[in-house]
């Protein structure tokens, strides 16, 4: 565990907590894409199939449980919670997200490290995570007005990705045989998707004005 990996995990954790805070205390999921949240739940489900068979550390196990539990409870809140679901902006969240899964699955079947069910599902989760933010970004672009918590949520998610790249660079130079083409390519693509958002986030922060995306 290096400082970049820890910073990445902590910003990831913070992003989830910010979103849960918004949903749980304000009882609102305005501006949040259910499609993206459903994709994240599928990402964690398919990635952590080895939760009980491959022990890495207590830290890893607890974090996996947190990400699984939080992603499914967020989906539950938006779909089922009596108050929260009324704030869900269904008309702005029209991305056909399940169609994103097919290319990821096909790619995972052909491009993987080892052709076993667990390994293909893990690879699928890496590809799917890379593009899971797309419905959320489309929704942001449509609503344009972004409340503070939604902005912070997406900023923290992007920060998590950026820290993971620094973590890989660090590990590449400090560990022997640390080459992970699949995670690296998917991870860099994923991080680039946040680039545009980051630009406008920092602009609004620098000029101290409300975050608003251009039409």
């Amino acid at each position: 565990m290096n400082i970049f990996r820890l910073a990445g995990d902590m910003t990831h954790l913070a992003s989830v907590l910010v979103l849960l805070l918004k949903i749980h205390t304000i009882k609102s999921c305005a501006g949040i894409s259910l499609k993206t949240q459903e994709l994240f739940a599928i990402v964690f489900l398919t990635r952590y199939l080895d939760l009980f068979t491959n022990f890495i550390s207590i830290y890893n196990t607890i974090m996996k449980l947190i990400f699984l539990g939080s992603s499914f409870s967020i989906v539950w809140y938006i779909r089922r919670h009596r108050v929260v679901r009324r704030s869900y902006d269904k008309d702005q969240d029209t991305f056909r997200h399940f169609f994103l899964m097919w290319p990821c699955l096909i790619l995972a079947i052909f491009i993987n490290e080892k052709f076993t069910l667990k390994e293909v599902m893990w690879t699928f989760s890496i590809y799917l995570e890379a593009i899971a933010i797309l419905p959320q970004l489309v929704m942001l672009q449509r609503t344009r007005n972004i409340d503070n918590l939604t902005g912070q949520y997406i900023f923290l998610l992007g920060a998590y990705r950026a820290f993971y790249i620094l973590n890989w660079i660090y590990r590449y130079f400090t560990e022997e045989h640390y080459v992970h083409w699949i995670t690296w390519v998917a991870g860099v693509i994923q991080t680039l998707l946040y680039g545009d958002f980051f630009y406008y986030y920092f602009q609004s922060w620098k000029n101290n004005v409300k975050l608003e995306l251009p039409a």
Partner: peptide, 10 residues
């Protein structure tokens, strides 16, 4: 490579 399939990241 040894680290390849460890999946020690989250």
């Amino acid at each position: 490579a040894k680290a390849h399939l460890d999946h020690d990241e989250l």
